[in-house]
Design a protein around this nucleic acid. Structure first.
Lengths: 145, 145
DNA sequence: GGCATAAAAGATATAAAACTCTTTTGTTAT
DNA sequence: ATAACAAAAGAGTTTTATATCTTTTATGCC
């Protein structure tokens, strides 16, 4: 398994995809998203329902409905998605899984891990949801094979 | 969930504990290890069986038996444990979970993630199993609450 | 209003990870 | 040899993550 849960990976890819597809306005349906990021449709639906409840994506039912983002969402940091799905654990937890690990009661890897956690957090925090649209447009980056 | 699986967290803590407890020689039993790192005994037994098969720890049955390390194990990098338990995925996989993500077909986070993966790998590779014995002795670091 | 569309919600299924219990095998000491 | 010890191995169970299917609700269009 990777750094994030599968759910979180799908979530990030889906939000990137929505940002990309609806950049000019409009909405994009669950089928197109699932296909565009190569994820199971119904499972992704659940994930997006959750992100919608948490205000990270927006949705509209009915004809011409689908998912989209509001202006401010494009400027949000990626860490908002990670925290919504996987929680803050990845940015805060002990590398050895010790609950009471802290500055005053550190595990052997505490300081080394802190540096890594901080780097992950910093990277996810400085990166915004909308900043990859251009590269995706140009085909420089991809969200599936 | 953290960066590593629970299995891997227990494995690392257990190996640290064995290194620490058997530093002067001798062996340490599964009950004492499980207690010392606050992990479920039978589950840890399975993990150590596996580490033993892979040559990371050694074991002896019967009276005065238990787990121990050979000399060379103390100089091994921590990454050996991680790879044995969780595989190399954590050091190599795509942050967004895209199978075909690579230098020539990168995901949006590819380059940022590469830096992080490399840092994790570097940290785990430069760190040896035996290097924390002194701090554990002095009570500066801990393997459970 | 009635119909088509599309997400939300609910219920269920499958797989993997985490954990437990019991039996077997090998070792040591008497 | 046999009794006690301790890990190895085998066979579960429970929990969590992942995935699927069905029904309901909201919306737009005619």
């Amino acid at each position: 398994m990777g750094v994030f849960s599968k759910t979180c990976e799908y979530a990030m890819r889906a939000v990137f995809f929505i940002a990309h597809k609806t950049a000019p306005g409009g909405r994009v349906g669950i089928k197109e998203i699932a296909n565009g990021i190569d994820s199971p449709e119904h499972f992704l639906a659940k994930i997006l329902q959750d992100l919608s409840r948490r205000g990270i994506v927006r949705s509209a039912k009915g004809p011409n409905g689908g998912f989209y983002l509001d202006e401010s969402a494009l400027k949000r940091p990626l860490s908002d998605i990670v925290e919504a799905v996987d929680g803050k654990g990845i940015f805060l937890g002990c590398g050895l899984g010790i609950k009471q690990c802290s500055e005053i009661n550190p595990c052997p890897l505490h300081h080394e891990f802190k540096a890594i956690r901080n780097q992950i957090h910093h990277m996810m925090y400085k990166t915004t949801i909308g900043e990859f649209n251009e590269d995706l447009d140009l085909g420089i980056t991809a969200l599936k094979k």
